[in-house]
Design a protein around this nucleic acid. Structure first.
Lengths: 116, 116
DNA sequence: CAAACCTTGACACGCTCGTGGTAAGGTTTG
DNA sequence: CAAACCTTACCACGAGCGTGTCAAGGTTTG
């Protein structure tokens, strides 16, 4: 059988085996399975895991955020609803002070930094 | 001064005053302020609040999800990074079983329903 | 002026997220 | 076969979300 086992993949990607299972259960990186049920990671999965990690740390994004983005990509109905709501935002003057949601999104990160 | 106060807006939108402050702090619906600092809600804000509520309940979306979508709309860099990662997904066969992330995203909802 | 409203800040509570661990049991390998 | 690995299923734990409530203090209104 070709493909790395979960601990090998963990070593090579910097995730823990525990997190690899968690990420798979989130539907973000799914491994193939051997006949006996072992997860098998190929080069594509390894690359996806590495870039996912990069994405999360570089932009301080949560797994649930990426999962939501995937949802947006899959459901045109949801995507349209969200975009319609967002578009109604900038239309009125003084509606949202610039950098407001940005502060919110970064607040968690700020707190983590402050606690260190 | 024109504009409804926070409790009036709460009544008309179905949110609590507490949540209106929370939503504002999330940067999603920001009210104008009177000279003495009172929040003032106009028709545009009321409508945004109503549609936001609809969005959240209808698609079982979190406030942080909408905030993230706003972030995607503001930062081309982030949007490109996320979309690039997502595009690398469907390329390989058997990469992700269909409906996998969907189960994950709905799991919370399922648990809530199961508890009732 | 007193009642009724608004403000921010805090405590609390249950739930989800991200993460580690451990237990019970099947598989692969030396 | 025994060691080393894999599986799922749990317990735990701190941090964040969504929400209510309460306190201390300023504002508007009858």
């Amino acid at each position: 059988m070709d493909g790395l086992t979960i601990n090998e993949a963990a070593q090579l990607t910097g995730w823990s085996a525990r997190m690899l299972r968690y990420v798979e259960n989130a539907g973000l990186v799914t491994a193939a399975r051997s006949s006996s049920g072992y997860r098998l990671y190929g080069p594509a999965q390894l690359q996806r895991l590495r870039t996912l990690k990069e994405l999360l740390t570089r932009f301080d994004v949560a797994l649930s955020d990426v999962a939501f983005a995937a949802r947006l990509g899959e459901s045109a109905e949801l995507r349209d609803a969200v975009q319609a709501w967002l578009r109604s935002e900038a239309s009125r003057p003084g509606d949202v002070s610039p950098g407001d949601w940005l502060r919110f999104e970064q607040e968690k990160h700020q707190r983590l930094l402050a606690a260190a």
